[in-house]
Design a protein around this nucleic acid. Sequence first.
DNA 1: CGAAGGTAACTAAACAGTTACTCACCGATG
DNA 2: CATCGGTGAGTAACTGTTTAGTTACCTTCG
Lengths: 212, 212
Amino acid sequence: MSERNPDRTRADILAAALEEFAAVGPAGARVDRIAAAAGVNKRMLYHYFGSKDGLFAAVCEAQLERAELAFFKPGVALSEQLADAVRVQSAAGPWMRLLVWAALSATPQGGTDRAEAWRRAIDAILEAQTAGELAAELDSSQLLLALVGLVLFPIAFPQLTVAITGRLPSDDQSIVERSGFAAALGSLIAVNDRQATQPKPRYRLTPIVTRS
Amino acid sequence: MSERNPDRTRADILAAALEEFAAVGPAGARVDRIAAAAGVNKRMLYHYFGSKDGLFAAVCEAQLERAELAFFKPGVALSEQLADAVRVQSAAGPWMRLLVWAALSATPQGGTDRAEAWRRAIDAILEAQTAGELAAELDSSQLLLALVGLVLFPIAFPQLTVAITGRLPSDDQSIVERSGFAAALGSLIAVNDRQATQPKPRYRLTPIVTRS
DNA sequence: CGAAGGTAACTAAACAGTTACTCACCGATG
DNA sequence: CATCGGTGAGTAACTGTTTAGTTACCTTCG
């Protein structure tokens, strides 16, 4: 019991804090509860992270580190990417809830450094659009926002997802359904999907000529 | 000052509580702060609502009451409905944040009674699909979930919206952009949009015949 | 006059953060 | 090569404040 292990202690605190923060948010989280769950003296928590807010920031940092969104690399079929994204994000555990708490708790920093990643994703979409692979009349940044929402919204709002679809987003069947739907929608948006991995019926966009 | 007015007092408390809860959530909210903002003695708050949780429930109830989502009535073009929904929800003030807090705070009741409204919306979509107005290969409940997400996601995650699009979702320009995008996407999903209200180029979905 | 509306001051618990201490490790010094 | 001392890891008990919820007491209307 009296073994010393700074790294282990730190990791234990972070793990317990992740659970606590994801479950009840920074305001609802109790420092004593985190310390107890980590099997660590509360003082250690302040030793390593300074304060409750510092701990929350550290947890967010650590989660953002390992949660590479990797949205929309060029050269891969959109429907495939979307289906993958649904699967990956659904399996990512409590980090999504953490992002929601962070978004609500209005920490102005942290979002800025990720802007570069989004910038790249938008560029990839623009590229695909000029190459004629994606519906060109859709605004590229709006499209990215919508696609991110498509993937994350059900995970962020499990209750709403249950109310509408009858299943929790963590449910295996729900993941199958959602990734399938995401792929189908991707096929609608992709004008000329590169790889026909989906056996679903696929469509092309043709202008409607209306008589005035 | 010493005028008596129970209804007024109740309303004042609810209004102040809405602000507070929307801003910092149920855990972060301070009863004293709500009472002070309402210009009311804290005791009155307990008189009318019993407890902090009771007050939160009452606020949510009241907001859900007046926030009729009215998603997807049959007979109106999808693109129009979506654009409207974006405008309405964006103008709806703090209620969306409240919904997010409520979703995170895992109050199992409250979601159940709204299930009927979602049921109707899904039926409307199904109807439109069998009538050949909406892409039939998309699962109806998944489609509803996605469309709700399309409207609400940017509002629920303002920071993310800023990072991707450069604008806050409450920004007038952002509302214009998002409603325009929603309409365009609606046109993609609607096989045969009824009313051509959008001056944007519009498209029909035609199957791609692939040579095997 | 009595029930509902309203007030001020109080309380018991919970909470973030601290104090004051011990213990183990490790490199430097005699 | 022992031992000394400093530093970082760890503990238990405490503190000052904040907070949800209460008590005991007025006031006004029907």
